[in-house]
Measured scan of single mutants.
Amino acid sequence: SGWQYDTQCSLAGVGIEMGDWQEVWDENTGCYYYWNTQTNEVTWELPQYLATQVQGLQHYQP
């Protein structure tokens, strides 16, 4: 899939279920990364769990 979410945008106002994931701001890069509080996994790309929800939002315009 060529769909890419801009990680400089916060998910805070989007209104999706974050589940075990937390969004963390990284000052050095000026982007958010994502931290799974259960598994301690850290990812710079939007986790599939969140990406599926964001893509499903009608009002979200990339």
Results as ranks from 00 to 15, higher is better:
Ser1Lys: 15
Ser1Ala: 13
Ser1Thr: 13
Ser1His: 00
Ser1Gln: 02
Gly2Asp: 15
Gly2Lys: 15
Gly2Gln: 13
Trp3Met: 13
Trp3Glu: 05
Trp3His: 06
Trp3Tyr: 13
Gln4Gly: 08
Gln4Met: 15
Gln4Asp: 15
Tyr5Gly: 05
Tyr5Phe: 10
Asp6His: 06
Asp6Ile: 07
Asp6Leu: 04
Asp6Cys: 05
Asp6Met: 07
Thr7Phe: 04
Thr7Gly: 11
Thr7Leu: 04
Thr7Asn: 14
Gln8Leu: 05
Gln8Ser: 15
Gln8Glu: 14
Cys9Asn: 15
Cys9Met: 12
Cys9Lys: 15
Cys9Gln: 13
Cys9Leu: 13
Ser10Ile: 03
Ser10Gln: 03
Ser10Ala: 07
Ser10Leu: 02
Ser10Gly: 09
Ser10Cys: 05
Leu11Glu: 03
Leu11Asn: 01
Leu11Cys: 04
Leu11Lys: 04
Leu11Trp: 05
Ala12Arg: 10
Ala12Trp: 02
Ala12Ile: 05
Ala12Ser: 11
Ala12Met: 02
Ala12Glu: 07
Gly13Glu: 09
Gly13Met: 09
Gly13Ser: 09
Gly13Ala: 07
Gly13Lys: 10
Val14Arg: 12
Val14Gly: 14
Gly15Trp: 01
Gly15Asn: 08
Gly15Lys: 11
Ile16Val: 13
Ile16Leu: 09
Ile16Phe: 08
Ile16Arg: 01
Glu17His: 10
Glu17Trp: 04
Glu17Phe: 07
Glu17Val: 07
Met18Pro: 07
Met18Gly: 03
Met18Thr: 10
Gly19Phe: 01
Gly19Lys: 08
Gly19Thr: 01
Gly19Arg: 01
Gly19Ser: 04
Asp20His: 11
Asp20Trp: 09
Asp20Phe: 15
Asp20Gln: 06
Asp20Cys: 09
Trp21Thr: 01
Trp21Asn: 00
Trp21Arg: 01
Trp21Ser: 01
Gln22His: 02
Gln22Val: 13
Gln22Pro: 00
Gln22Trp: 02
Gln22Met: 08
Glu23Gly: 01
Val24Ala: 04
Val24Ile: 04
Val24Gly: 06
Val24Lys: 15
Trp25Pro: 05
Trp25Asn: 00
Trp25His: 07
Trp25Glu: 04
Asp26Arg: 03
Asp26Pro: 00
Glu27Val: 05
Glu27Ile: 09
Glu27Tyr: 06
Glu27Trp: 02
Asn28Leu: 07
Thr29Gly: 09
Thr29Met: 10
Thr29Trp: 05
Gly30Ile: 13
Gly30Thr: 13
Gly30Asn: 09
Gly30Tyr: 03
Cys31Ile: 05
Cys31Gly: 10
Cys31His: 12
Cys31Tyr: 11
Cys31Phe: 14
Tyr32Gly: 01
Tyr32Ala: 03
Tyr32Cys: 03
Tyr33Ala: 01
Tyr33Lys: 13
Tyr33Thr: 05
Tyr33Leu: 03
Tyr33Val: 04
Tyr34Val: 02
Tyr34His: 00
Trp35Met: 08
Trp35Ala: 15
Asn36Ala: 02
Thr37Ser: 13
Thr37Val: 11
Thr37Met: 14
Gln38Asn: 07
Gln38Ile: 11
Gln38Cys: 12
Gln38Ala: 10
Gln38Asp: 15
Gln38Val: 10
Gln38Leu: 09
Thr39Trp: 03
Thr39His: 05
Thr39Met: 05
Thr39Gly: 05
Asn40Phe: 05
Asn40His: 12
Asn40Met: 06
Asn40Glu: 11
Glu41Ile: 06
Glu41Ala: 10
Glu41Leu: 10
Glu41Asp: 07
Glu41Trp: 05
Glu41Phe: 03
Val42Arg: 14
Val42His: 11
Val42Tyr: 04
Thr43Met: 06
Thr43Val: 10
Thr43Asp: 11
Thr43Pro: 00
Thr43His: 05
Trp44Glu: 14
Trp44Ile: 03
Trp44Thr: 11
Trp44Cys: 11
Glu45Leu: 08
Glu45Met: 05
Glu45His: 05
Leu46Glu: 03
Leu46Gln: 07
Leu46Gly: 01
Gln48Tyr: 15
Gln48Glu: 12
Gln48Ser: 12
Gln48Arg: 11
Gln48Leu: 13
Gln48Cys: 09
Gln48Val: 10
Tyr49Pro: 09
Tyr49Arg: 03
Leu50Asp: 00
Leu50Cys: 04
Leu50Met: 03
Ala51Thr: 06
Ala51His: 06
Ala51Tyr: 10
Ala51Cys: 09
Ala51Gly: 05
Ala51Asp: 05
Ala51Trp: 08
Thr52His: 14
Thr52Glu: 12
Thr52Asn: 12
Gln53Lys: 08
Gln53Ser: 01
Gln53Met: 02
Gln53Tyr: 00
Gln53Arg: 08
Gln53Ile: 02
Val54Trp: 06
Val54Arg: 02
Val54Asp: 02
Val54Lys: 02
Val54Glu: 01
Gln55Ser: 08
Gly56Val: 07
Gly56Met: 05
Gly56Pro: 08
Gly56Thr: 13
Leu57Arg: 12
Leu57Cys: 06
Leu57Gly: 09
Gln58Ser: 10
Gln58Val: 07
Gln58Pro: 08
His59Asn: 13
His59Cys: 10
His59Ala: 13
His59Thr: 15
Tyr60Trp: 11
Tyr60Gly: 14
Tyr60Ala: 14
Tyr60Pro: 14
Tyr60Phe: 14
Tyr60His: 14
Gln61Arg: 10
Gln61Asp: 12
Gln61Ala: 14
Gln61Ile: 06
Pro62Met: 15
Pro62Arg: 06
Pro62Phe: 10
